[in-house]
Design a protein around this nucleic acid. Structure first.
Lengths: 106, 106
DNA sequence: CACGAGATGTAGACTAAGTCTAAATCATGA
DNA sequence: TCATGATTTAGACTTAGTCTACATCTCGTG
């Protein structure tokens, strides 16, 4: 999980882990994932309409959601830029990202 | 709903509507909201960790999430810009937005 | 080694958002 | 008025995420 390039849901992680550790409890997987988030080892994303997904990549980056497959792709931070953030006058922006949707070119 | 500046969840809409129409069924509210989305009268957002929220503002815009209150604010499209989108070479970007999190200044 | 205390994991119950279903009701045209 | 299709209802159902009580593990100490 901590090294995957994907963005699995908790249940997906559970199913994957259960292949190697069939005795592991679902609650343990949820609890562990949430602990990792709390301790800063993972980030949770609310991009998927069905569930929270977890992102092991801690460096700030953008996201591209493939509408055909549902896959979430990490986009390097400096690939695109958000210009004019200073104009957000009434807000203190702690973090931001560009969320893009579309399809992957072949 | 179609004119609100907020981003209510389905259940929030239900509770609001039920004040005027106590007989309305929860499923009707869900069904109607989903129909509105399908017909393009509303957009659904997956920004809130707890539920889908609905956005009546059809013009493209960005979002700012107030982490203190959970409130979602619409940010005018031209307030900030995403530069270098052409660099998304392997992707066909159908739509994008900047999602910002932080707090509102007093 | 034994023991106690705290941490961690388990198994299943529980909650709540969202969906489904069968039936009732409504709306419309003939 | 009636038939038909559309819409709504009320509650059941599903499932992601959380909670709970208990079991098990880990570690430090004597």
């Amino acid at each position: 999980m901590l090294t995957t390039k994907e963005h699995p849901s908790a249940d997906r992680v559970w199913k994957t882990v259960a292949e190697s550790f069939p005795a592991i409890s679902r609650a343990t997987v949820y609890n562990t994932l949430n602990l990792f988030v709390e301790k800063g080892l993972l980030r949770e994303l609310h991009l998927d309409p069905d569930s929270v997904v977890f992102d092991p990549k801690l460096e700030t980056h953008h996201h591209f959601i493939d509408e055909a497959t549902g896959a979430i792709h990490d986009i390097p931070w400096d690939r695109v830029q958000v210009c004019n953030l200073e104009s957000m006058r009434g807000f203190k922006v702690r973090e931001y990202q560009v969320v893009m949707r579309g399809t992957k070119r072949h």
